[in-house]
């Protein structure tokens, strides 16, 4: 957890120091797309369900 906290804190400090708030929506979108890709993946062993023969 400590690692996660410092990573997030680092980003926060960077945004605050550089006043780069315009990066916020980009970061949020990147996280969203990342989550989508991870959870949207189909199982490698899922069979064909449309082609039955």
């Amino acid at each position: 957890m400590e690692g996660n906290k410092s990573f997030l804190a680092e980003i926060w400090d960077f945004l605050k120091e550089r006043k780069a708030w315009w990066l916020t929506p980009i970061i949020i979108m990147l996280v969203f797309v990342g989550v989508l890709i991870i959870f949207g993946q189909s199982s490698a062993i899922s069979p064909f369900i449309y082609a039955l023969f």
Binding site: L36, I37, F39, G40, Q41, S42, F48, I49, Y50
Partner: peptide, 19 residues
């Protein structure tokens, strides 16, 4: 919405087919 957005990629092989 969340699952179907994921299906854009994950069901691509089967032309977006689901049962």
């Amino acid at each position: 919405l969340y699952k179907q957005l994921g299906w854009i990629w994950s069901t691509n092989r089967e032309g977006g087919y689901w049962i």
